[in-house]
Design a protein around this nucleic acid. Structure first.
Lengths: 156, 156
DNA sequence: TCCTTTTCTGTCTTTCTTTGACCTATGTGT
DNA sequence: ACACATAGGTCAAAGAAAGACAGAAAAGGA
């Protein structure tokens, strides 16, 4: 298992069901896992971003810390956030994958739905020669169409 | 016996009766068989395709892997036909919609899946300026990816 | 034999992870 | 205020895989 995955799991473990918030000491954690302190930043940057459903803040200097807060939204809010704010006129493949995964993890859609959506906007599905910008625009439209389909299904 | 056949047999051996899913390390396997790593790709490309009833995915970088999932027997029958005959490397919007509907009506996929697929390849989702031919190719790839995703589902 | 298909290797590319060097902010004691 | 210690931040380079693809080698077939 990759170190980053281990650290990710460790942090998520710290953050129990009730406590949707956790505070860590970068250096301590790095010491504990025997890695460079910036490794912690890497984990945060790749696994605890707003797209992943987390917001982080920190304080430097003596007694410094990093606080990680998990944002919880209702299914409705989550969907409308994605539709109206997050997915604009374009979205890259990787972000799309993350958003799909997050939808499943937050319980907004089933894992099967999430995987289906992720497949539809995966790099493989888009492996046709055209400018990245056009791909992003199309991905956004397709993602939106699928999310609307789900939202509609919900309202019946 | 050819090396490729040996590797094929080895992988199928790993994937026992119950365990219809296996994860390999490309470099390790190549090392074990004393061959070029790309030989593994050759084996996968020629013997573990959807037509053969397998779907693969992978992760690059440190701690990377290749995962091979065996498609359910019942799903495999439809899959080859859909991928090769019905979809091919291009499909227009209307045919795609009809296909989705038929898949749901014949019970090959759930209604929810069909609706999601239909939404993904709907004219609305594709309302972006580009040649019809490219759209058809893309629609085919997207449908293909989604069908593979469905076929890949095992015991969840 | 000669041609075609299949198998195999090598090289270059892309992606993800890990480390390290240097930078900036904050707290504390003088 | 100033200096120093104690944090965390940034970024680039190195490392660790897997992917793509062209071309060599081997196997089959006519």
């Amino acid at each position: 298992m990759r170190l980053s995955d281990t650290i990710e799991a460790f942090i998520k473990e710290m953050m129990g069901e009730e406590q949707q918030e956790v505070e860590i000491k970068r250096n301590e954690l790095a010491e504990f896992f025997n890695c460079a302190p910036s490794q912690i930043n890497y984990v945060l940057a790749t696994r605890f971003t707003p797209d992943h459903g987390y917001v982080t803040s920190s304080q430097r200097g003596g007694g410094g810390y990093i606080r990680i807060v998990q944002v919880r939204r209702s299914a409705q809010d989550h969907l409308s956030y994605l539709l109206n704010e997050r997915i604009g006129n374009g979205i890259d493949a990787q972000s799309a994958q993350i958003l799909c995964r997050q939808l499943a993890e937050s319980g907004v859609v089933s894992l099967a739905d999430a995987q289906l959506m992720a497949a539809a906007v995966s790099p493989g599905a888009f492996s046709v020669p055209m400018p990245e910008q056009v791909k992003n625009a199309l991905r956004a439209k397709i993602l939106r169409a699928m999310l609307l389909s789900i939202a509609q299904r919900r309202g019946e």
